[in-house]
């Protein structure tokens, strides 16, 4: 069996701290396989993460890696990319990190179309702190801070990214692992803000509270409810209800990335030769 992805991990930092059955490992592997498939130069690739279960991934990956503060991965990544545009900058974030405490940075990262590839590990919960409701905990589902079920409507991070100006938006799941890898790989190709929502199972904090403590059960839910975009678009509205959600490339458009746009500013100011 081909295990070339192992070279991208810091073997001396493993095993990881994620719970048995967690989907974060699958999503992390999908990222390094996407990197491998696109042949990104490892010395010129930086992994940036926020805080939370998702964001511990950076420490296991053998690149220059940056574990920032809660919600702040995108501003740090923006600084890295603008300071040295030849670097490939990949952000790993979570549903709480990206859409709650980092929500404003997410919106404006999309708007600026900075050439970043942002992978959101959506486990529907704050896992690291023990299972509190996030903006992506489905309404009605339980969490330690939503003992009677979450009251808040959920964020659809993909629609948010599209509306805010991201030029590549895709979704996949830990069940559809090859599809997830190709969605991330295509995101790496896009010269602009690429956003990939990777749905991952959290049996410990989310599943246990919601009668789905078996990781297989959670992955079967992904299998049964994910609908490929092309098929989704043909569904009548009444079939798009309930737990069903689209996966695949959801949105793409051409746009000038921020560093390229700023090069024009440098030209105008006469600083190009410096």
């Amino acid at each position: 069996m081909e295990r070339s992805f192992e070279q991208y991990f810091r073997q001396n930092r493993l095993p990881h701290l994620w719970c048995p059955g967690c989907g974060n490992g699958i999503a992390t592997k999908a990222i390094v396989q996407a990197i491998e498939s696109k042949g990104l130069e490892r010395d010129k690739t930086v992994i940036v993460s926020g805080i939370g279960c998702s964001s511990r991934a950076s420490g296991y990956m053998d690149f220059d890696t940056l574990h920032t503060a809660h919600g702040r991965a995108i501003p740090f990544a923006t600084g890295i990319k603008l300071a040295n545009p030849e670097l490939n900058v990949i952000v790993i974030t979570g549903d709480g990190d990206c859409t709650a405490i980092g929500g404003n940075h997410f919106i404006h990262g999309c708007r600026r179309n900075v050439d970043l590839t942002v992978v959101l590990f959506n486990n529907n919960i704050y896992g690291m702190t023990g299972g509190q409701a996030s903006p992506m905990t489905p309404t009605g589902k339980k969490a330690t801070t939503a003992p009677y079920g979450a009251v808040d409507p959920v964020f659809d991070a993909c629609r948010l990214a599209e509306a805010a100006g991201a030029t590549y938006v895709a979704r996949s799941t830990a069940y559809h692992v090859q599809h997830l890898t190709s969605m991330i790989a295509d995101g790496l190709d896009n010269k602009g803000f690429s956003f990939i929502e990777a749905m991952v199972q959290c049996p410990t904090a989310y599943g246990r509270k919601n009668k789905m403590s078996d990781p297989v059960q959670l992955m079967m839910w992904m299998r049964d409810n994910a609908v490929m975009k092309a098929a989704w678009d043909k569904l009548p509205e009444d079939k798009k209800q309930g737990d069903r959600f689209p996966i695949g490339l959801l949105y793409q458009e051409a746009g000038v990335d921020y560093a390229t746009a700023y090069d024009h500013v440098i030209d105008l100011a006469g600083g190009a030769a410096k």
């Binding site: 920032t68 501003p75 923006t78």
Partner: peptide, 12 residues
Amino acid sequence: ASMGVVLGASLA
């Protein structure tokens, strides 16, 4: 974000 972006730039 202003503080985050300058730290990223400095690291780079």
